[in-house]
Design a protein around this nucleic acid. Structure first.
Lengths: 160, 160
DNA sequence: GTTATTCCTAGTTAGTTGATCGGAAAGATA
DNA sequence: TATCTTTCCGATCAACTAACTAGGAATAAC
């Protein structure tokens, strides 16, 4: 329905990682149990389990099984971007009718429509590839991103 | 699956409107038949019919029934933005788990995640609300948008 | 060997996407 | 008036996806 949709997976995944970021600052090796994350962020346990597994397979988190097991970040939080997380959980950032934007072909007056979709993807990358977990945890967004929040109407929905 | 997805409706709708833009330049009152648009852009006729109806209900196109009927733009092509089109066809630009970004609430270390999603939406608006049908038809994108296409790697997919 | 925890495969359910079908309404022409 | 053309509209459909659940296997600590 929506052109830009942050899925439950991406949202829950980010929240789990921000919990792990907080733990990482105390002690980078500290393990947090899935159950604890689930309760702290109110996310269905079994669903979260699958998300954390995907994040592990992408090398973003590490895990240990058994008693005293749990999860932790496998990279420093300033080295994990939101784009990394979203790509790990939801695949490629952008698509046009299911295809990569650079793969769609247009003819006639639509010839330059592809440039538009490429620009959309570039704009998305410019935001998501430059914000790290550390940025969000400490509420210090890159200046170019912070500027977006100062634009008039950024916080309001479009009434029209 | 993808966080930014240009649906078939949005893509077909833009292509139809660009056909109408070309006709508008010859004569703003000229009517084009749905069947002609369908053939020119290779879009399923009946599907396109529904898209054009939605665009009419949003005041972007006008239509006339009966023999010698058809469709035309109801506004000048430099007054119709891509955001207008995708909102007319796919609803709000951005959502987080189905909700408006400003409506989601976070706690603990995720507290500032909302700012991130708001920034994502703002970035998307900055592109889609500033490109008009006329811009795409004449391949003269606003300078800030054109700059996105010049960024290194804008045309390549991320390999990682 | 018992308990705690992650790992993995396979469901389930509700909703969405991308269409198609069959006709009703409206306008042009003869 | 009759006929042809075109848009309008509701219903329907198959395939897919998102969000979530169930049940147990593997691993680690004690």
């Amino acid at each position: 329905m929506q052109t830009v949709h942050i899925s439950a997976k991406a949202d829950y995944g980010m929240r789990a990682l921000l919990e792990l970021t907080a733990a990482y600052r105390e002690n980078p090796k500290q393990l947090i149990k899935g159950d604890a994350i689930s309760k702290a962020q109110d996310v269905p346990v079994k669903f979260l389990e699958g998300i954390l597994r995907q994040l592990r397979q992408s090398g973003i988190v590490a895990s240990q099984r058994g008693a005293e097991g749990g999860y932790r970040l496998d990279r420093s939080p300033d080295e994990v971007t939101i784009a990394d997380v979203v790509r790990a959980l939801d695949g490629p950032l952008a698509a046009v009718r299911g295809q990569r934007p650079e793969d769609v072909v247009y003819s006639g007056p639509s010839e330059h429509l592809r440039e538009v979709w490429i620009a959309v993807r570039a704009a998305m990358r410019d935001v998501l590839e430059h914000i790290t977990l550390a940025d969000v945890a400490s509420n210090e967004l890159p200046t170019t991103v912070a500027a977006l929040l100062d634009e008039p109407g950024a916080w309001q929905r479009r009434t029209s």
